[in-house]
Every structure is written in structure tokens, then in C-alpha cells.
Design a protein around this nucleic acid. Structure first.
Lengths: 332, 332
DNA sequence: CACCAAAATGGTTACGTATTCATTTCTTTA
DNA sequence: TAAAGAAATGAATACGTAACCATTTTGGTG
């Protein structure tokens, strides 16, 4: 391992000067720069970023705790976040959190020196929030928020749920249902609140509406779908809390020989890139803005790191994206 | 920032002992461990992994240079790689390489102290290969290989191309075409070689077959597809070099009002997770083994890091996965 | 030519840990 | 109880860089 000392010796200058050539060349005589650069070249010297981190107390690393990529939402956000972070000259440590591995991820992350953390895995009540605040590293949540109501960027979940339910109800569907995830996550909770509100607005008793609260892995969604098929009155429209769930429902429908939207209407929330594919063409609710939620969040996080902002509390507006998985209820 | 020295002082021991408590507690008296742990607790001490990296000359970081996630192949490999690396207690620096940003990624990566590198972006002739060997860091390529023929895990690309072409030809399609990427990438080159071989085996002059070599972003694929539609004899089967291309072709077909497989048969290569979705149901060619290619590669990389292996040269066998985007040519 | 300010360079230290080697303390056994 | 060996601890150092402060060199001016 060739160090800046070796370069210094080889160039006949001090290590300090080598450091200056690389960081503040404007304070070094051109001729000296030349000498040092030549030595760097000849010795094939590469600065040790670890040593630099130690002395500067900056790692240039952002930690991302994302959900798994089989959820297309995280495909979009991970892309946006990683690319933005790298374009800013930082590195990204990526973790894909699931129910199983979150604890070990948190342990690893808390023992890692990163300049900031961006995560989506936070629960509404989560000790992690306080651990992070105690740790003193800037952090931001995207998609989900904590009950402390700080450091988050989310979509207007309540309104999204409302718009989704309202859409299918307005299309004449009398018998609808909800498939969502655990309400410890602000996302699912908010969206379901909005869903219920729309249902009530249409004069329907929310309690009469079949509601499936499930984990979001494939198997559990399938289990919920099987339950759904057993209902006495089979719903004509399925409101899914996320596009990921909706797209998996789509898959299950086709697998079982049902047609969408003929047999079932399906609507999601998130307006994921994949939902735009013409083989999917999922009706969904998503950001009014063109920007990706992960992108909005990571930009905000950099603002915090640069002390331009201190506390982020941002809720983005949403709108309907009608596509081919919903249609007027023919039975009317 | 509370350091191990602070803990030492607070516990009334030396810094060395603090270090030992954390790393080799079997050499420390139980009572001393207790004292130190109490101090760690009280001071809320967290070891500085950067300082540790500096002295141990190990960062615990693996660099992953992947392709972009809008390519579903990289969704699968990134998932497999990141999860495996994290399960081994390492961290992953992720980059998504495109035509535009590869140079800056390489610069960043070469200046980053990682314990190893796993990448898919290598060209068949690529200076990067030699730079990496010079750098002396273990590295492995997945999906693509370099002409030096070392450090790679790939699928049997030639056979994959052969199987794909053979499949549609055997279904009675006389007029077929090829859409692939630049041949500087071993993947595209190998697959096209196999495609041509199958064509010849069916007594067709390979030169008569329309061949579109395109960049793999959405716009360029669309451009190729438009060219395809202008052909005098419109092909009934489209062989795509990757599932990513095939799935985008699917999208374009539907967008333009064509039906698959009625108007066009489409076949891909890679057997990407998304291809199994019933809305897509893409016929494709993929690994015989159940394991993901990224998973195979990252396991091999760890073997190299542990000096169990030195040079990886692995080609995995493939087979056909017939689904709904291909069918017998009705015109026969 | 002498002097002074500005420019350029160098010596030393800190960052926080693991490691090496030396020293002290404890345990066992004759 | 003394000696020898084992167990436990500590002091000093290295890792490779940036930063701070001190020193030398340069260039311009009277």
C-alpha cells in the first residue's frame, strides 16, 4: 500500500505538500504540483479514503434502508435515491429490510459511521426513531412516518385512500373490499382511513366492507385473496393499499382464471413505474408531482446535512391515474 | 464523540482492555468485562468502524456496480447480492451504471477502499479489467465477461440464444428477427452467435434475418421497434436478447394495439422474476439451476476473499421456460 | 540592497482503533 | 512458601490522512 508519505519521499517534498496538491492546489507552486503529480503517477498512488474519513469525521456514505425490490415501489425509490446520492459524490450503503432481518439491519446500521440515513422501514411507534435521534445522525423517512411527526416525506395517504375508494364507488361498484398491510405503518393506516371516509360518504356502513389486513409478502397476499374468494358476496372491485399488493392481486386473478377488470376491478396506490406497463395498466393513485418520492426525500436529506433545513415534515398531494384495471360496473 | 479512551477512563482500565472486551473477551476477567460494559452502557459508546477499518485494513464493504433497476434482471441480482452480503455482515456500496455515468462511477469506485467488487458493467474489451487487477482488490463479473476470461460467472449465452431461436423456429415461424444490444458486451455477442447457429440449422440464411442492434434504454428500443414495423416482411416472432428488451417490446406491442402472441411472438432470455407474472407470462430461456446468477457470483466472490478460490470462470447451463408469449404459427 | 509582506513549504499532531510487546497479577505445584 | 507458569492488564505504536502552526522562500518596494 503506497501512502502519501511514500509519494512525498519520492517527490522530495513533505507529506503535507502532497496532501495540499490533492486538496488545495491553489496554495502550491505549479512546479511543485508537477513534481508531486509525477510521483503519484509513477507510484500509482491512490488516496486512502478511510484515513481521510477518520481525520475529517465524514465518511461520504449515506445509508439506505429500503424495502425489498420485489415491491416495485422500492425499485423506483432505490433508483432515485442511489442515483442522486452518487451524483452528489457520496456512496450508498443499501439494505433491503423485511420482517425477518430488520433487527440485524438496525444493529449494523447503528454501528456504522454514515453521514446520514434514509429509510422507509420505520413503524409509527418505533424505538429506532429515538435511537437515531440519540445517535445524532441526520435521517429522513420516506413513505412512512413516526408518531413524533418529524423527519419524513410522505404522500397524502388519507386522500389517496379516499380517491381510490371514491373512484370505484363512482364507477358503480357496490361491493368493494380493502386489502392492506398492518396499521403499525402510517402508510397503511392513513390510506385505510381515507378509504373508510369515502365509503361513508357514499352512504355505506364501513363495517360491512370486507377488509383484509395482511403482511405484504406473496404468500400472505395469496392467503388474503383466497379468503376473499370465499366471501358470500364476492366484491367486484378490490382496493389495494399499494400497487405492489394490487399487482400481486392481478397476478393471482389471472392465475385463477379471472379476468381484470371483467371479473374484478383492481386499484392500487403509489403509481409505481411498473403500473404503467401496458401488460399491467393498473389504475392507481399517485403523486401529483412528476418527482419520485425517494428523490424528494433524499434531496431534503441533503438540505438537512447542509444545515439548510432542520426538520422535514412534508406531505405530497396525490391524484388518480385511471388505466385499464377499473371500469364501470356493468351490473348497474 | 465518545471514544474507547473515554470508556477506559470511566471504567478505570486501559484502552487496550476496552478493545479486548469488545473483540476478545475470552482474554478478559469477567469482572473487568462487567466494569467495561457498564461504562460502555453509561457513556453510550459506539465503536468507530472507520478507525477500525484503518488499522485492520478491512472495510467490510463490497462495491456493487449494477445495471439500472428498470431492467428487471438487475432487480433480481441486486436483491440476491445485497441480501447475501448483508447476511455475511458486510455492507454494500451500490451503483447503477448507465452509458452516461459509468466513467464517474469507475473513478469513484477506484478511489474507494472496498474489500471486493462485484460488477456487471464490464465490456468484452475494457481497460477497467486491468485497472482492477492492478488495484489488487478481489473482483468478479456477473452476466458479462472480459476477453481475458477470468473472474466471471455467466449463463451459457450461446446456448441460450440457440434455444430461443430454435424454439420459435420449431413453432413454425419462418419470419423471425433479433433485437439485441451492442456486441461489445459478451452477453449480447454470445446470444446472437447462438441465435445465428439455430437459424442456420433450420436451413435459413442468417443474413436474411432482420437484426436490430440497439442500446437498451426505452427510447432506443422503441426506435428499433419502429424500424421493425417498417419491414416489408413483418416478422411473426421477435427474439429479444434479454427479458428486459422482450418486456419492453411487449409494452410497445400493446401500446400500438398489437396482440401477443397473435400478432407477434416474443421470446426473451434471462428468466427474470417479472417474466413469471401472469400479466407478462414471457416465454424465455434461463438458468437450469434455481439459483440467481447474482447469488452464484457473490458466493464465489466471498470464496475468493477467503482465499478458497483464486480464479472464477463459471458458465451456467440454461433451459427453455415456455409461457404465453409464444405459440404455434397459425399460418402454416 | 535591505526590508517587509505574501507565498510556499514543512514539522508535528490528532483522529480512534487494534496490535505488539512488556509488565503485573494470579494460580498451581513441588 | 517459593518458584514457575499462566492469566490479565497496560504502555506504546501504527494505520494514512488533514489541519494547525511554524518556518522558509519569494517577490516587490523604498
Amino acid at each position: 500500500m503506497v501512502s502519501s508519505k511514500d509519494v512525498a519521499k519520492h517527490a522530495g517534498v513533505s507529506q503535507t505538500t502532497v496532501s495540499r496538491v490533492l486538496n488545495t492546489p491553489e496554495f502550491v507552486k505549479p512546479k511543485t504540483i508537477e513534481k508531486v503529480m509525477k510521483a503519484i503517477e509513477e507510484l500509482n498512488y491512490i488516496p486512502n479514503d478511510i484515513a481521510r474519513s477518520l481525520v475529517q469525521k465524514k465518511t461520504g456514505i449515506i445509508t439506505l434502508i429500503s424495502g425489498p425490490l420485489h415491491n416495485p415501489f422500492f425499485v423506483d425509490t432505490t433508483t432515485a435515491i442511489v442515483n442522486y446520492v452518487n451524483s452528489r459524490g457520496y456512496k450508498v450503503n443499501v439494505y433491503f429490510g423485511t420482517e425477518d432481518n430488520l433487527d440485524s439491519i438496525y444493529n449494523a446500521v447503528l454501528e456504522t459511521k454514515a453521514d446520514a440515513i434514509i429509510l422507509s422501514s420505520m413503524l409509527f411507534q418505533d424505538d429506532l426513531f429515538f435511537k437515531l435521534e440519540k445517535r445524532g445522525i441526520p435521517f429522513i423517512m420516506f413513505n412512512r412516518k413516526h408518531q413524533e411527526n418529524r423527519h419524513f416525506v410522505e404522500i397524502d395517504n388519507v386522500n389517496a385512500g379516499y380517491i381510490a375508494a371514491n373512484h370505484v364507488l363512482s364507477l358503480g361498484h357496490q361491493s368493494i373490499c380493502w386489502i392492506g398491510g398492518p396499521h403499525q405503518m402510517s402508510t397503511f393506516d392513513g390510506r385505510y382511513q381515507g378509504f373508510k371516509k369515502a365509503v361513508k360518504n357514499h352512504g355505506i356502513d364501513a363495517k360491512s366492507i370486507p377488509t383484509f389486513i395482511t403482511n405484504t409478502n406473496k404468500k400472505d397476499i395469496e392467503r388474503a385473496f383466497d379468503e376473499l374468494l370465499k366471501l358470500d358476496i364476492r366484491p367486484t372491485a378490490i382496493c389495494a393499499a399499494t400497487d405492489a399488493i394490487a399487482i400481486e392481486i392481478l397476478n393471482l386473478c389471472l392465475e385463477r382464471g379471472f379476468q381484470v377488470p371483467k371479473d374484478f376491478n383492481v386499484i392500487g396506490i403509489d403509481n409505481v413505474e411498473l403500473s404503467k406497463h401496458h401488460s399491467i395498466a393498473l389504475t392507481t393513485v399517485g403523486l401529483t408531482s412528476e418527482e419520485n418520492l425517494g428523490f424528494i426525500a433524499i434531496k431534503k436529506l441533503f438540505e438537512v446535512m447542509e444545515k439548510k433545513s432542520t426538520c422535514i415534515q412534508q406531505t405530497e398531494s396525490v391524484k388518480l391515474f385511471p388505466r385499464n384495471t377499473t371500469c364501470k360496473n356493468e351490473l348497474i
